[in-house]
Design a protein around this nucleic acid. Structure first.
Lengths: 153, 153
DNA sequence: TTGCAAATTGATCTTTGCGTCAAGGTTAGC
DNA sequence: GCTAACCTTGACGCAAAGATCAATTTGCAA
């Protein structure tokens, strides 16, 4: 059994198939400090869990969708990991003052991340608008043309 | 004078500075058939015009913002150039039927381009929404926290 | 006319993000 | 306990997108 459904543990090939990447890619990501296996089996086999599946999906999203380099992805993940740490500390304290402080930190990080995404988004929006405008102009010409020239079809 | 303001003619270094790339990059783009200089001076110096500035900006936008490879950029530009050609032919005919046909071609191309952009946009939107949601959750916690713990500031 | 910044072509170098062997070690199933 | 499928590390290869020489030329400017 290569894939223990109950514990969610899987070997490198299983994870690779699930994420549609090659094992080589996963080893490479590991070497860059992007994705660590949850454990190693006695023989040396890497073992991954469900958290790894999610993290890998995130990596691919950042790389493919947003076009970040793996170096940038590492920085972003580092930041996200920090948020998780803040969350853990938040859950670990009862002190309202400390809690509020931690929340503010998390908020700040989320804000920074959003900034990044919104910049890309704005550029894309502008492009979309531009194309839409062009389409509208052409459509209008087409209307005039087929309207004036006697409608066809 | 390296940069004739009146005619908008400039040499490779001028264009490079304006677009924040290196001259090497421009020569490379030329070798890929992405950006042709408007002319060459007798000595062999490349001369660029304002159209080149715009085209270069477009290339960078497609590459940096949308994450297209230079190969893909070339295809997209080819398509855009085709639109320009359609436009020229449109202006060159009076035949309403031909005109309508050309307009429909242009419309189709614009549609295809928009599809591409919108796919990227959708992914980014989803990411932005996700972050926004996270922010909202944190803000709510913060409200509760500072609300319950006695407001400060 | 000489001098220096900027240009030319050509060649080789670098980085990123993996792919592809090579030579073995591990493990599930029979 | 054997075999096939999977895994290990290590090394080299490769395409994209330039960067960096190197050896000359060009051309404005004093």
């Amino acid at each position: 059994m290569s894939h223990n459904i109950a514990t969610g543990e899987m070997r490198i090939g299983d994870l690779a198939r699930r994420a549609e990447v090659t094992p080589r890619t996963l080893r490479y990501y590991e070497s860059l400090g992007l994705l660590q296996p949850a454990a190693r089996r006695s023989g040396g086999f890497r073992l991954y869990d469900e958290a790894a599946v999610r993290r890998l999906a995130r990596i691919r999203q950042l790389k493919e969708l947003l076009g970040f380099s793996l170096d940038e992805v590492r920085e972003i993940l580092r930041s996200e990991d920090a948020v998780q740490e803040i969350r853990a500390r938040y859950l670990g304290t009862e002190d309202a003052g400390v809690r509020a402080q931690l929340l503010r930190q998390a908020l700040e990080r989320a804000g920074a991340q959003r900034e990044l995404v919104r910049r890309k988004l704005a550029g894309l929006q502008a492009m979309d608008d531009e194309i839409a405008e062009r389409q509208a102009r052409i459509r209008q010409l087409l209307q005039q043309s087929t309207g004036a020239g006697g409608r066809q079809e």
